[in-house]
């Protein structure tokens, strides 16, 4: 079972990111489960969402304390929400940041990507969730980029979908380039 925790702020599409990730896994005929941090997500407040991906039916109903992967949509929450706590050895950390992180946990493959910049450029709005999923697919290869694209289509439509898709592809190429 592959467990992912996504950190960010209310209004940045953190919950939608977890949902899209679970849809992408579903499209690859896998079992997946996504759920928010069950709080009242106030605009700006730190927020967490979770996603489990597995080949067997997922029955477990507990929070994810030791994730295999972390997506940080807004690096300013790293400190206040202890976003990097509990990451498993050999895990993956994808951070939305235009500059490298000052500190990061041991033997974990960490990547930074300016998802907000890419989102602003391709989508015109600073919502980084679809972009980061593109990066996530490249970093972990737990899901394919095509499934991410199809998942984006379930959440957005028309021009907005196309823009998010191209943004996700840019992130995918960028991260796979770095691999």
């Amino acid at each position: 079972m592959f467990q992912v925790r996504i950190h960010g702020r209310g209004g940045q599409g953190v919950v939608t990111a977890a949902e899209m990730l679970s849809i992408a896994a579903f499209l690859e005929k896998k079992y997946s489960q996504a759920f928010p941090s069950f709080g009242s997500e106030r605009t700006g407040a730190p927020v967490v969402a979770f996603c489990r991906i597995s080949d067997r039916e997922i029955r477990l109903r507990e929070p994810i304390l030791e994730p295999n992967a972390l997506i940080v949509q807004d690096k300013t929450v790293i400190e206040s929400s202890h976003a990097l706590d509990g990451i498993l050895e050999g895990g993956y950390v994808l951070v939305n940041s235009s500059i490298p992180l000052s500190s990061c946990p041991k033997n974990v493959s960490l990547r930074c990507i300016d998802a907000t910049g890419i989102a602003l450029e391709y989508v015109g709005r600073p919502i980084p969730n679809a972009v980061l999923l593109g990066g996530f697919a490249a970093l972990t290869s737990v899901i394919k980029i095509d499934s991410v694209i199809d998942a984006i289509k379930t959440k957005f439509s028309g021009a907005i979908a196309e823009k998010n898709i191209s943004a996700a592809q840019v992130a995918y190429e960028k991260i796979s380039g770095e691999n």
């Binding site: 009242s40 106030r42 605009t43 700006g44 407040a45």
Partner: peptide, 8 residues
């Protein structure tokens, strides 16, 4: 201050 209302 310190309440949890949204920004603005």
């Amino acid at each position: 201050g310190g309440h949890r209302g949204c920004q603005g």
